[in-house]
């Protein structure tokens, strides 16, 4: 269908699209509404991890027991999206396809090494989330491709994680900076949100490190990734500083859990 419609716009939860229409800057007139298509709202879990349909809501990811059990970092990140009412509607496929640099789930999905399943008339392909965010609000999806699933590997037993979202103005504002940290098998995975035109990912091997050494290493690997966009929420300088604070907080927090485990 996507290939036959002129000027298509995929309509998932619709929360972002409606806002743009109201602001008078989006004129797409052929919505491909996914709500009517069955099977896109399912979550399945097995030993390897989760598979979630694109129309699963953010709230669904937040509250689903399997997600909480298999990938608690993902569940936590989805819980930070906007507010419960928006989470009830916002779809995880739309959230990814929007490709916005400030959204909360991408940092977690980056740290977790999630995969996007993209489908078109040509077939279905898998895109690692770590290669999904191409440029400012641009994803690796082709114009006629749909997100048909998100696969999230199970968090390894004995892993630790933190999600830190920091708002610089009112407490429930968009993030000024956010970070997801997953420490699994001494490998530290870091996903960054709102700190560059795209969500960013970094990792390092922390074998033999103390918590302080891990923090230092984390700050070192994220440094070249920081390219924040200045706005009312903060200047480049401030956002860079915040990045260091929240990454340190997140790594330290996760490290502590690791020690306590």
């Amino acid at each position: 269908m996507m290939s036959t419609v002129d000027n298509p716009m995929v309509y998932g939860g619709g929360t972002a699209i409606q806002i743009l229409i109201k602001q008078g800057i989006l004129f797409a007139d052929n919505f491909v509404d996914l709500a009517g298509i069955p099977g896109l709202t399912e979550i399945t879990a097995d030993a390897a991890g989760l598979r979630a349909g694109p129309m699963v809501t953010a709230r669904g990811m937040e509250t689903d027991d399997r997600v909480r059990r298999v990938a608690p970092l993902a569940s936590t990140a989805y819980r930070h999206v906007a507010n419960p009412r928006v989470r009830n509607t916002a779809s995880i496929g739309g959230n990814l396809a929007h490709g916005d640099y400030r959204l909360d789930p991408p940092p977690a999905l980056l740290a977790l090494d999630a995969t996007v399943e993209a489908t078109s008339v040509r077939g279905t392909r898998s895109l690692p989330v770590r290669q999904f965010f191409v440029d400012f609000q641009q994803t690796a999806l082709a114009p006629d491709e749909l997100v048909t699933a998100v696969r999230i590997p199970a968090q390894p037993t004995g892993s630790a994680y933190r999600f830190v979202k920091y708002s610089s103005l009112s407490a429930n504002d968009w993030p000024c900076a956010s970070v997801a940290v997953l420490i699994a098998g001494r490998e530290v995975h870091i996903g960054l949100g709102a700190l560059a035109p795209v969500p960013r990912y970094a990792s390092f091997d922390a074998t033999g490190m103390t918590d302080q050494a891990a923090v230092d290493a984390a700050l070192e690997v994220i440094a070249p990734l920081l390219d924040p966009i200045p706005d009312v929420r903060g200047s480049v300088r401030y956002k860079r500083r915040l990045a260091q604070v929240i990454v340190e907080d997140a790594v330290r927090g996760a490290w502590k859990d690791l020690d306590n485990a």
Binding site: Q23, G24, I25, F136, I229, P230, D231, V232
Partner: peptide, 17 residues
């Protein structure tokens, strides 16, 4: 006008592109 209130980040980023 309408575009003005969409704010700086988008413009800065687009201008770079």
């Amino acid at each position: 006008g309408k575009l003005g209130r969409l704010g700086e980040p988008i413009i800065r980023r687009r201008s770079q592109e």
